[in-house]
């Protein structure tokens, strides 16, 4: 890995943010809008409960953490789409840049987006609803790290599909992550799922993160089992999708479609 090549790609993407209102809106406006809607729902539900029990308190936290996963995935996929839209893939892959360095750069961009969105949402939640995301304490860090990894897995998987199937698959950049939302059990416990779907959710690392967080808020006990399962599954899947990305890259070179992605 050559760090200067990763840095070059990151700087190339940061240049885009300097003068692009839609890209800045993606970091501020949409997360803010999400938070406002869910914030009012939380306030409304709280009036029925008389107080703020864990289940209601959890909604805003779950929303912020779901956005971590969503933006983490977007950071990978949109960075790849930016290169397709700019017809820049040929310039990049005819340079010494390796596919691994390309992925690493998209992961750095993903961290940039996650950090920006998390700061915006946490600040807004605190300012408008008096909600402190750090109520979860230090456990927040491994939860976030695992959600970032899950976002990367979905992002790399989606990117490989777009690379393989071209423009037709671009819509997956925005829709793929929502396929995982029902089985991530973001706003409800895994127990409410039908038995067969519970089995599917059990192999989804994000479901263990949200399950662990609910458990922590309700019982104040360390969610070690959930975190262990989430981390193990994440590392397994991340290894697999990175291998699959490399395989897809080679298939595209074989078929001559790498330079025609997006056409």
């Amino acid at each position: 890995m050559a760090y200067h090549r990763i840095a070059a790609l990151v700087i190339r993407h940061l240049y885009l943010y300097r003068r692009s209102l839609p890209r800045v809106m993606e970091i501020i406006y949409w997360p803010f809008l999400d938070l406002v809607v869910w914030g009012f729902i939380t306030v409304y539900l709280a009036t029925f409960q008389g107080q703020m029990p864990a289940v209601v308190t959890f909604l805003l936290g779950a929303l912020i953490l779901w956005d971590v996963l969503f933006r983490s995935q977007q950071g990978i996929t949109i960075s790849f789409l930016e290169e397709i839209w700019a017809r820049n893939l040929m310039n990049l892959f005819a340079s010494p840049l390796t596919p691994s360095e390309f992925l690493a750069a998209t992961m750095v961009m993903s961290l940039f987006k996650v950090t920006a969105v998390s700061v915006v949402m946490s600040l807004c939640a605190w300012l408008f609803y008096g909600y402190n995301v750090f109520i979860i304490g230090l456990w927040l860090m491994p939860f976030i790290a695992n959600l970032v990894l899950t976002g990367w897995i979905i992002g790399v998987f989606t990117t490989s599909l777009i690379m393989r199937f071209g423009q037709e698959a671009e819509v997956l950049a925005w829709s793929m992550v929502f396929l995982f939302q029902p089985i991530s059990c973001v706003f409800y416990p895994m127990d409410v799922l039908p038995a067969w779907l519970k089995g599917v959710a059990a192999v989804n690392p994000a479901a263990h993160v949200f399950e662990g967080m609910r458990g922590l808020l309700a019982t104040h006990t360390a969610p070690l089992t959930n975190l262990g399962l989430a981390s193990g599954l994440n590392l397994l899947y991340l290894g697999a999708v990175v291998l699959w990305f490399h395989h897809t890259f080679n298939v595209c070179k074989e078929r001559g479609s790498l330079v025609r992605v997006g056409e």
Binding site: A8, S95, P96
Partner: peptide, 29 residues
């Protein structure tokens, strides 16, 4: 140690001329 130029290939449209050259220079170390 190799580079190319083609009439049919451009550089990222949303960057300035100088930004594009700077990115390329970094990419090649």
């Amino acid at each position: 140690q190799v580079n190319f130029s083609s009439t049919y290939i451009s550089l990222p449209f949303s960057l300035t001329v100088e930004e594009n050259l700077r990115v390329v220079a970094r990419l090649y170390g």
